[in-house]
């Protein structure tokens, strides 16, 4: 299990995810820009702490993290980040309501056992949630299943079907439906193409669902 998780973190950091000229991952920069300066933030599945570090440096946030892999946690703590070992599926219930301004789930939703429960907890603990995930509706994924007839493997989904931590794939459209089903307000949504650039803002959902490799959503409670 831990090997898989470490591979998962390695894949999350893989060079194949586009980076800006100063070396920051494009999706993380985008996530960080959704967070207001000085906010209190919980990063669920924080890996080696790259996003927390970025948020601390660029947005002056009071950041905390939860990470499943022991190696990831120890690396984070040694960097001076406030990170604990824990599981998004089981440990979010321990946090009180409204403990954070933002709860972030970066590239981890598809690896949770109960994505809906996780999302509900995120918006209970935090006033806002930021979720980024690989879009299973991307055209390369569709083509692999349609023409090659096997489970898709892409740069950001590099695993074989029998050895993957990703157990709940979804498309951008699926995610929007989940948000509607649990009464979550989508404050902002961005789809990134394979080069990490945001797609046209005024494009319809079907266009994003086909050409977005990742979805990044800023959510809040409806009332």
């Amino acid at each position: 299990m831990s090997t898989t998780i470490n591979d998962f973190n390695a894949a999350k950091n893989a060079a194949k995810i586009a980076r800006t000229s100063n070396g920051a991952r494009v999706d993380l920069v985008l996530v960080s820009q959704m967070v207001t300066r000085g906010a209190k933030v919980l990063d669920v599945g924080c890996g080696d702490g790259e996003l927390l570090h970025l948020l601390g440096e660029s947005r002056d946030v009071d950041g905390r993290g939860i990470e499943l892999s022991r190696e990831g946690v120890n690396e984070c703590v040694a960097k001076g980040l406030a990170v604990i070992q824990g599981d998004a599926d089981t440990d979010l219930g321990d946090y009180p309501d409204d403990a954070f301004d933002y709860v972030i789930l970066s590239q981890t939703l598809q690896a949770t056992r109960h994505p809906r429960v996780v999302l509900e907890h995120m918006l209970r603990i935090g006033r806002h949630a930021v979720v980024s995930f690989p879009n299973f509706g991307h055209w390369t994924v569709r083509l692999q299943l349609l023409f090659a007839g096997h489970m898709p493997q892409t740069d950001i989904l590099p695993y074989s079907w029998y050895d993957t931590p990703n157990i709940h794939h979804c498309t951008i459209k699926d995610f929007v439906q989940l948000c509607n089903a649990i009464g979550v307000k989508i404050e902002k949504a961005v789809a990134l193409n394979a080069w990490g650039s945001p797609l046209r803002l005024n494009a319809p959902w079907w266009f994003w669902n086909l050409f977005g490799e990742q979805g990044v959503f800023l959510l809040s409670r409806k009332n």
Partner: peptide, 18 residues
């Protein structure tokens, strides 16, 4: 201990060493 600290919104790090 960590759960209790989280519940009080404390700034907590937790590491288990093998």
């Amino acid at each position: 201990t960590v759960h209790a600290l989280n519940a009080s919104s404390a700034r907590v790090s937790f590491a288990e060493i093998v």
